[in-house]
């Protein structure tokens, strides 16, 4: 199997995640798009592990998952806190720091 195809798929998913972050306003969907980008990076890691015949890539992917889990917990807590005070999860609404 050609490893390049996996890399191309990973870059496509990463670009789609970027588009999601830039296009969407709902903080939850933006956050999920970030998760998609992390997943795409994971796929690239696993594909490179296959390419080089070493498990280090899979290990890196595993650590990315751990960091993603921690990030989701804190990020969702922040979203809930913002929702509590502003009654909205739109990223356009949080503009208190706007000049």
């Amino acid at each position: 199997m050609n490893v390049e195809n996996y890399i191309y798929l990973a870059t496509l998913l990463f670009a789609l995640g970027t588009a999601g972050v830039l296009l969407r306003r709902n903080a939850l969907v933006v956050f999920m798009s970030v998760e998609l980008m992390l997943n795409a990076a994971n796929l690239a890691f696993v594909a490179f592990a296959e390419l080089h015949g070493q498990l280090d890539g899979q290990m890196a992917s595993f650590f990315v998952m751990v960091v993603a889990a921690a990030e989701v917990v804190v990020g969702l807590a922040i979203i809930v806190t913002i929702y509590r005070t502003r009654r909205s999860t739109s990223v356009d609404e949080a503009n208190l720091l706007k000049f």
């Binding site: 490893v3 390049e4 870059t11 496509l12 990463f14 670009a15 592990a49 390419l51 015949g53 498990l55």
Partner: peptide, 20 residues
């Protein structure tokens, strides 16, 4: 970004996959 990554990382692949 997609084009950049595809050509950048895709170009970094050399040789056949070793396999696990």
């Amino acid at each position: 970004l997609f084009a950049l990554l595809m050509f950048g990382i895709g170009g970094a692949i050399q040789g056949a996959a070793v396999g696990l």
